[in-house]
């Protein structure tokens, strides 16, 4: 465990020692701020157009916070490859992989360390959005429980992206290749349910189950469905398992 934490700390340290962390977090904050502002504006318009007494007021959780965080998943899709593409590719290119693999560490410790390091950076990135949520609490009265579940959902979804990104990064020495492939895979996992409609009801159910963002909907509604939690957890474990296999086979091939 100590080794995992050491590696995770080193990963986080190297994100913040290079411009990566600042650029990623900064531009994430910029994009999120834009989406947030435009959705708040839209929500305001909707609220004003409603005639008083014609029905219950707009639910801030459903009409504003839900869509805002669905937008986050899109930004994460673009940002995450930048975080994960270097994890293994950089170590291989600079030769530091030799240090890690000749140290008394197991592959699993290295992988978990890198995973937690990237997850740490992602958590810091998400923490930025707490400011915006705080603003909503000052001027409105949203419920905090659905917000907590949406953060849980986003963390799980991000962890999935990270595990897939780690695997792809472990396949190559070239960061750009890793980044591009990761982005393509994420995008496909996101839009895979578009194709579902042409496969009939069963096909659609199967395909939309594969879609990584589809599972986020319920979290945004404040529901923690074990189905989705298990999907995310199994995705993460599978990604980390593939990474372990890839690192091990690299070792044999030399």
């Amino acid at each position: 465990m100590r080794n995992v934490i050491t590696i995770a700390r080193k990963e986080l340290q190297s994100y913040f020692a290079s411009p990566i962390a600042y650029v990623v977090i900064g531009f994430f904050a910029l994009l999120f701020g834009y989406f947030f502002a435009s959705l708040v504006y839209w929500f305001e318009q909707q609220s004003l157009q409603m005639t008083p007494g014609s029905g219950p007021p707009l639910n801030i959780n459903q009409a504003l916070i839900g869509p805002v965080f669905m937008n986050v998943s899109v930004i994460v899709l673009f940002v995450m490859p930048m975080i994960t593409m270097r994890t293994y590719a950089e170590e291989k290119r600079s030769g530091t992989m030799e240090l890690l693999l000749t140290s008394p560490l197991t592959d699993v410790q290295i992988i978990l360390g890198k995973f937690l390091g990237a997850l740490g950076l992602y958590a810091v990135m998400l923490a930025v959005t707490l400011i915006h949520v705080g603003v909503l609490f000052i001027y409105g009265s949203p419920e905090w429980k659905p917000i907590a579940t949406v953060y849980l959902g986003l963390l799980l979804m991000g962890a999935c992206f990270i595990s897939a990104g780690l695997f792809i990064s472990s396949l190559t020495k070239n960061q750009i290749v890793a980044g591009m492939v990761t982005f393509a895979v994420f995008l496909l996992l996101w839009v895979i349910n578009w194709l579902g409609q042409s496969f009939g009801p069963t096909g659609q159910a199967v395909i939309s189950h594969l879609s990584i963002t589809e599972h986020l909907d319920d979290f945004a509604r404040g529901i923690i469905d074990t189905k989705h939690v298990i999907y995310y957890l199994s995705f993460i474990v599978f990604g980390l398992f593939l990474t372990a296999r890839s690192v091990d086979s690299e070792r044999w091939r030399g």
């Binding site: 080193k10 190297s14 020692a17 290079s18 600079s94 030769g95 530091t96 240090l99």
Partner: peptide
């Protein structure tokens, strides 16, 4: 090549 992390 010494296995160094350039940013550390």
């Amino acid at each position: 090549t010494p296995p160094l992390y350039p940013d550390m």
